[in-house]
Design a protein around this nucleic acid. Sequence first.
DNA 1: CTGAAAGCGCTTACAG
DNA 2: CTGAAAGCGCTTACAG
Lengths: 352, 352
Amino acid sequence: MASGRHQGPDDDAGPVRPTSRDVARSAGVSQATVSLVLRDKWHGRVSTGTAEVVRTAARELGYRPNLAARSLRLGRTRTALLVVPALTNEFFARVHTGAARVAAEHDFGMVLYPSPEIAAPAPDPFGSARAALDGVIASSMAVEALATLRADGLPLVMLDSDPGGSEATVNLDIADGMRRVVEHLVGLGHRRLAHVTAAVDSWTFHARARALADALADTPAALVRTERAELTVTGGLEATTRVLSAAPDATALVCDDDMLAAGACKAVRRLGLRVPDDVSVTGFDDLSLATAVEPELTTVRLPAEEIGANGMRALLAVLEERAPDTGVLPVALVARGSTAPPGPAWRHGGAR
Amino acid sequence: MASGRHQGPDDDAGPVRPTSRDVARSAGVSQATVSLVLRDKWHGRVSTGTAEVVRTAARELGYRPNLAARSLRLGRTRTALLVVPALTNEFFARVHTGAARVAAEHDFGMVLYPSPEIAAPAPDPFGSARAALDGVIASSMAVEALATLRADGLPLVMLDSDPGGSEATVNLDIADGMRRVVEHLVGLGHRRLAHVTAAVDSWTFHARARALADALADTPAALVRTERAELTVTGGLEATTRVLSAAPDATALVCDDDMLAAGACKAVRRLGLRVPDDVSVTGFDDLSLATAVEPELTTVRLPAEEIGANGMRALLAVLEERAPDTGVLPVALVARGSTAPPGPAWRHGGAR
DNA sequence: CTGAAAGCGCTTACAG
DNA sequence: CTGAAAGCGCTTACAG
């Protein structure tokens, strides 16, 4: 009997979980053989019959390998952490779906860590997510927020973030998305746009602002006002109210996000105006909210699952010391009911 | 040198992470002392000076305990798994927030596992979430979906679920919420209600249907129609369209969820009617969507963070073999713009 | 007040 | 084709 009598960490916890030792004993083989068979490394090393006996014994005992022991031995956990700024947001939910799918395909686990602070240093995810990790994927976070992680020397892949921040970055073509919004609006005849910008200090929103300015430079239209908004529907409503009082001649509101755009629509209506007749509104992200509101939002669809999947592929590459594919993913404009040509008053240069 | 030459699992991976052995050597003490000091179990066993030396050495080396080794030794991981049917849903995001907060207070980690199938057996979360776990909290899932988990003999706490399903259940007062919706609607004068029910086979939606029928029994009002809807805005729209063609005399639509209610509002308007003038609509959950749409939704606010927090407390109790507190949490009706007295035509018994 | 030793459960290089 | 043994890094009961 090999059980360390005075060392047992736990003596009362219900039925004892079987170990590979138990399987070996039950199958009449060594622990090594059990490991080989169960890890599928037995071909040409263990006879087919023995393998079958081992598998049967494992099944009958309900054996499940102890992951802590395996990790300790292997020095690898086959687990990645996905850090996102918010769980509430569908975009991140979809990023997770994509990343988890690729992880599963490679027999990796995926653990999720919602870090409320996008820019501030996150509280130690190891104190919280706890699992031992092989690498980290962070979406739409500031590099500074990942300081603890980096200090641990873990491979880090950043998504929708400053390209210079980490060993690998997978990005969306934010600039192209904004350019298409501008083209769409200018094509409809809008000349005075306002920007409802997210008051969030992350690369993706800085990129949106920069792209908007750049895209506008090539057109006859101008940016007449920018207001910062807290990233909620109410934030969008309030910022838009400020925009329309400061720049009542704006005919189109470019919003950094669909939630902001939903709030903008509410603000427009509270001022007795109509969307899109009097004011056009655009969103960004194409969350399900975009089609829940009325009119439905013209917005930019981001390939959320795909960026998650590519992020996980990049992490796998880094882990295997291959060069990660850090291509920029294309986005698409989705035109819906919240945009239209500016109202007749505007087309004729009149005041509201 | 104690490193097992031919056993090293990994020879190339960058700077070697320091172990407690390195800290001990650097501080000139034994590994045991390091462990005692760092786990804060040294009082009266190690001198203050030695403790300080150990702490300094650990800091200087950037030592972090290997969690796999600790788990293996302790047989406990201080990690709980939260299984939710969807990440996209704010309700679950808030449940997670509450559960993670309580977990952190007790130095527990919290790992999230989104299981797309509410009712079907989930794919093995151990293959996927991978972390070694002390217990599981599952929100709004069918017991059958947790078969794998239960088979592992892990303590399980269920949230917003069939009270009979597990060793501990923490529930919301769904029945009371539905009763208040009915009181509100009947109080406004509605007599013909229809139910847009979620086509999801989970306890919480069955409870909502049952509670609606029960509440209605005590009133002069009647349920004139029930339509099942896929749990999306579009699903709500389609089901409502069916409701209003089958039961054009319904003056109020009770929806199982805010997304469904948002879809219902869209359907009403597509038929040329107004919310709430012609048809009142109610939601359930009070997601931020409820105030993003217009009119804002009358709905039932569920204490999502609190149920998460109580769930984690219950799990902690089970783990410590104390009796879990499985109280039912109160909910509240939030009356907003999507409900009003039935239109004049209805009040006078006329047809639309 | 401190250290030496055992052992948690696993995997793999090696010897047969 | 199979087994015995070492060791991953930690914590704790025990001996001093």
